[in-house]
Amino acid sequence: MSTAIELRGLSKHFGEVRAVDGLDLEIADGEFFSMLGPSGSGKTTVLRLIAGFEQPTNGTITLGGEDVSGRPSFARDVNTVFQDYAIFPHMSVRQNVEYGLRVKRVPRAERRKRAEHALETVRLAGYDDRRPHQLSGGQRQRVALARALVNRPKVLLLDEPLGALDLQLRREMQIELKEIQRDVGITFVFVTHDQEEALTMSDRIAVFNNGRIEQLATPVQLYEHPASAFVAGFVGTSNLLQGEVAEQLVGAEGTFVIRPEKVTMTAPEAAPAAGDGTCVARGVVREVVYLGATTHSVVDLDAGVTLTVSHQNADKTIDAALERRDHPVALVWQRDNLVPLGGPRPGPVASPEEERA
């Protein structure tokens, strides 16, 4: 597969601040690629460098095999969709979508044809004559997307475009954006701090931290096999076992991650024996949090660490789960579900009977 974007040794300094620090990255043609990270991690600066809104301190930016590091934004075959949409309120939907083509002096008939096709692509056929104030937030977002797509760029850059939408609409637009990207077949580079957005839409995700990529992986790899404590904590909820706690509960030195949904909570007397691939820890439920589809239980373990347990609310009532607060429990998980950070996966621990033998 050919490369749409290649960054080599890319850095951007603002005084003493290294917003981007020696970044190497390749993004394939037709890929939905997300840059995920907290505020100040460098992801938006990288997007602006690719777009040409900022010039790099060091390094090169290659688009479609051409070095564009010194080119201004209008000379790069990319378009950007921003969070605030930047739609002209005095223009109709069609006029907004055609605007870039008018600037390029594309003939009127061609403009109309391409604008209609772009609106069909984003599911807005028939909305040509409406004004922005007559549209919902999701429709305005799609107008901004159509205005970018109508220019047929090789790369579409999206700077947190769903941030202004409410939760339900944002989730609907996540699915629509992915479907649109598959339909048009161009490279999407999506910037977000929302892990759910990144996991839902992306072919690959780069997790940013302090101007560098902490991990680059597919959504499944990123969630199931985080490369560091930062990634484990930023992408989803994680339980961290390290130091003496890891030696006691895992039987191995190092740092390990176990996801809350991989842990089962049971009554102490019903817990299986540790060993033969099973870990068992005892503690007291400090808090129970009902989240609709799931319930999270926060458990203070006797080993001196706090773990979170998550389970689906498949039963008609969760009263029993809510009543576990302040009750002793046992937590059980399989050793195969432990993810080691910076070391080999731990082997099985002998049962008490095997140790005595």
Score class of each variant (00 low, 15 high):
R345Y: 02
V250D: 07
I87C: 07
R123F: 14
H13W: 13
R94I: 14
G64T: 15
V106E: 11
A350L: 12
R356D: 03
R324I: 00
R114H: 10
L63D: 07
E269T: 14
L165E: 08
V122E: 09
H327M: 07
P272S: 10
I205A: 01
Y99D: 04
V289G: 07
M173V: 03
V17Y: 09
I50R: 03
P89N: 06
L10Y: 11
E179G: 05
P38L: 03
D276N: 10
A217H: 08
G211L: 00
L307H: 12
V284W: 01
R212T: 03
P132H: 01
E269V: 11
D194G: 07
T57M: 12
R105M: 12
S238Y: 15
Y223N: 15
D203E: 02
V143G: 07
T295I: 04
N209D: 01
F14L: 01
V191C: 08
S202E: 02
P219I: 00
P328N: 12
S11E: 07
N151G: 06
A51C: 04
H133C: 02
L10P: 12
I5W: 04
P268S: 01
Q168W: 07
T264H: 14
E214T: 10
A314N: 11
V220A: 13
T3S: 06
R259E: 13
L124K: 02
E31R: 01
T192M: 05
A148Y: 09
V122L: 13
Q312A: 13
M1F: 06
L301C: 15
Q139I: 15
R18M: 06
G65H: 00
N151W: 01
K154V: 02
E120T: 07
D183M: 14
V285F: 05
E120C: 10
R123Y: 11
Q334R: 15
A86F: 09
A227P: 09
F88D: 13
Q134H: 09
D300A: 15
E214H: 05
R324W: 06
V143C: 14
A125S: 15
A232I: 08
G275K: 13
K262S: 14
R204I: 01
G251W: 02
S73G: 10
A350D: 12
R108I: 06
T121P: 08
L199A: 09
E179S: 08
R325L: 13
P161R: 07
L119W: 08
P219T: 06
